[in-house]
Design a protein around this nucleic acid. Structure first.
Lengths: 148, 148
DNA sequence: ACAATAAATGAGAATAAGTCTCATTTATTT
DNA sequence: AAATAAATGAGACTTATTCTCATTTATTGT
């Protein structure tokens, strides 16, 4: 059963942006897919439903209200992921073969150590670090149906 | 004084690829700049010296022989960096203001812990992890002449 | 050192991702 | 329900990257 906060209309109204059909459709598609998705794949899922220009505008809108995370895969494809309230801090694992992107949660112990490392870097380089990302690359071996 | 291994001609012959002018010029420029650089900036440095199409081909050649690392900045600009033998494993720090990319070395202690985390992930997700990357984002405060 | 062969280059055409424009439609506010 | 403001669709436009092909440059065998 879907959480209330996962309803597109609720998400939009919670963030005080107007509720429109394209926004609802894009959110629905992202929620439904459930994983990070390339813009390309998202576009093909929305073909005939939402105009290309509108898709890009909606993605920008979602970024502005901080519910969309954008990054690039190792082959420079832009990947997009909803930031849901129930999600915890996580990182990404990329399959070099099928291109799948998987969420990975690392231990609190590790995250604490990373924070300490960043504090060191901040002091040494006079840099104010706001965010970080850990990316892992490899091959999803047996499990994956897309890989050969 | 430049290390022998840093001479473009040596780098190319060590990797058994033919020694051509554009390759030498691109390597020279990258060595000279010394830091990760956006393809855009590299292109402007090479204007009039190396054709655009050749630049992209050379970058691909360098990637093929594994001496060029490619990644994207937070604003999706493609960044390129030579992998030199004398360089140790490192990560990147991005300034959201001026766009500068800085190499950062994290402690061995941290790297060891990250390896352990990845081993856990490998087992849990039946994924063969080949590589990883830690990216940090923020603002290079006082030091930077490009910022504001 | 020199042909012969293979590989790389330059210039610009082609492609594709993302942005922009503007007339029309849809939300929101009163 | 009308007035106002915001969002959309369609396609033109821009820009990064790839491709094509005739020419140039490197490499190899003698």
């Amino acid at each position: 059963m879907k959480n209330m906060t996962q309803e597109p209309r609720n998400i939009l109204s919670q963030h005080k942006v107007s509720i429109t059909n394209p926004r609802i459709i894009v959110l629905d598609t992202l929620l439904d897919f459930g994983n990070p998705i390339t813009v390309e794949e998202l576009q093909s899922k929305l073909k005939g439903k939402v105009a290309k220009s509108t898709l890009y505008r909606v993605l920008n809108d979602l970024k502005k209200i901080n519910i969309l995370n954008e990054f690039t895969s190792p082959d420079n494809a832009v990947v997009v992921e909803l930031i849901l309230e129930e999600d915890s801090h996580h990182h990404h694992l990329f399959c070099s073969d099928c291109g799948e992107v998987i969420d990975v949660e690392l231990s609190d112990e590790f995250e604490m150590m990373l924070v300490k490392e960043m504090e060191k870097v901040q002091k040494e380089l006079h840099f104010e670090i706001k965010d970080h990302r850990v990316e892992m690359f490899g091959l999803c071996t047996d499990e994956c149906s897309n890989c050969e």
